[in-house]
Design a protein around this nucleic acid. Structure first.
Lengths: 161, 161
DNA sequence: AAAGTGGGTTCCAAAAGAGAACCTGTCAAG
DNA sequence: CTTGACAGGTTCTCTTTTGGAACCCACTTT
């Protein structure tokens, strides 16, 4: 299977991964969420090869996750900013970071803490059900075919999702 | 930068990506959350090259995300099951799927719907603050150095995370 | 004895990545 | 008016990782 075919798959995960399913892409997005915008900043903080960085930024811009923003004419300079679509990826980044904090942190503990500006406390993100508000775990959820389902999407017996 | 170096980085995202930051790995995990356990199931549903699948399953098992489970002696047959550590990745998978449902779905709509067994309704996951229970968006959060922080982890001015 | 099954490993060619050098506007200093 | 610096890339070669197919092995069924 080629990765360009992935965005035509009948699976939202596969379609998402065709845009951001790459180590460097996720690292670039982390830097964006930390407030970085410029080519040089990404390069210096990540140690990524320049042509790979250029490629990832281009693809993220094409996908509408980042937008180029002119911050200086003559010489023309552009920076990259998260769009609303990009900001919607926050739950993914937060999920990855929290999993790392819990399962991969050394003895010292988490490198970064998150403070909720609204309530002022150090927080974690918790995933709750949009309908009843209860926390959701994998075992609490079952899948059903949706409007855009293909035949092959569903598992044979519908089990946990 | 080499990817083996990533798990020594002072960043939970990088450490997480050193384990699951790979397209195929995430696709394998999707299948696990859909109830698949066997080598042949993964191969048939994903169209992944067999040696890549073998490699990913081995690494996931070494990382403690999947556990090998003997389901038959003579001939010896093993399947892969999510551990508690693996089940903790559900928020990540859910985040990716929901982003895809929202931004990458075609005209037909989402391929799969999720039903919350507890309340019986079709649901989405919503990320809320562990302290105040309000929904959390990227703009509502600021980062601070945590106990395991290194110098280079923090952005110069602490902005949005 | 032959074919099937589950779970792999081995081979080669193609694609993606690392690392370094080079290019393009533009300004500022000597 | 030449030299250097800066931001943001592109091009080059070399190594690593994939994709795709074939092969292997321990058993069971026909």
């Amino acid at each position: 299977m080629r990765w360009e075919d992935l965005d035509r798959e009948h699976c939202s995960l596969a379609r998402t991964l065709s845009v951001i399913g790459d180590r460097w892409t996720l690292m670039v997005l982390r830097e964006c969420f930390l407030g970085m915008h410029r080519f040089e900043e990404f390069e210096a903080r990540l140690g990524i090869a320049r042509h790979v960085l250029a490629d990832r930024l281009k693809k993220l811009a094409e996908a509408g996750v980042l937008a180029k923003h002119l911050y200086q004419e003559r010489p023309r300079r552009e920076e990259y900013r998260l769009t609303e679509t990009g900001l919607d990826l926050y739950p993914v980044i937060l999920g990855l970071v929290q999993w790392g904090d819990k399962h991969m942190a050394g003895t010292e503990g988490a490198p970064l803490l998150r403070v909720h500006k609204t309530c002022g406390k150090v927080m974690d993100g918790v995933v709750v059900c949009s309908e009843c508000g209860e926390p959701v775990r994998a075992r609490d959820v079952r899948v059903e075919a949706g409007p855009g389902a293909g035949e092959e999407t569903l598992p044979r017996p519908a089990r946990a999702s």
